[in-house]
Amino acid sequence: MESIVKKRIQQVRKGDQDAFGEIVELFKDRVYHVCFRMLGNRHEAEDIAQEAFIRAYTNIHTFDIDRKFSTWLFRIATNLCIDRIRKKKPDYYLDAEVSGTDGLTMYSQVQTDDPLPEEEVESMELQESIQKEISRLPDKYRSVIVLKYIEELSLKEISEILDMPIGTVKTRIHRGREALRKQLRSI
């Protein structure tokens, strides 16, 4: 896959926009998912994920072709997410509420119109409360937890994405886990 990506990037650099469309197709779900878990809101996630791809496109010449593209892309996306989180801090809790309802509409869209079985409702509610707790984490813990447990990236990759030493990543993961442990204890 990396070689396909590299080829497409070279085409994009020559000005071929369609090649970039293929890159978007390849990475859109992962980028969107990270943004959703970071922001806890479907609409904002789409907004930021799109912005991440647009930034990647306009800055494609600064990308080092010998490195992993996904790392670079996640770096753009997480930075945008963190910026957004910091900007909206004042109405933070209000927003978390909204994200819950958003999640509901999303999951119900995936399902058919049939009434949901009991366990489905329960699992939906569980998912929502987990997401809500992730959204309550301070952003520096949230980004490492999302990258580690949602994207299942290695500590090394996370340290590259967030541009910080592995030691810092580890500490943040530990603290993030501890914070989440306390929040999720009652579940």
Binding site: E25, Y32, E46, L126, I130, Q131, L180
Partner: peptide, 21 residues
Amino acid sequence: TVALVQSTSHIQAPGNFTQNV
């Protein structure tokens, strides 16, 4: 905690995502 975070379902980008970008 880890199990719960990992249990969150994988969600996909909206259908018209690529066109919008």
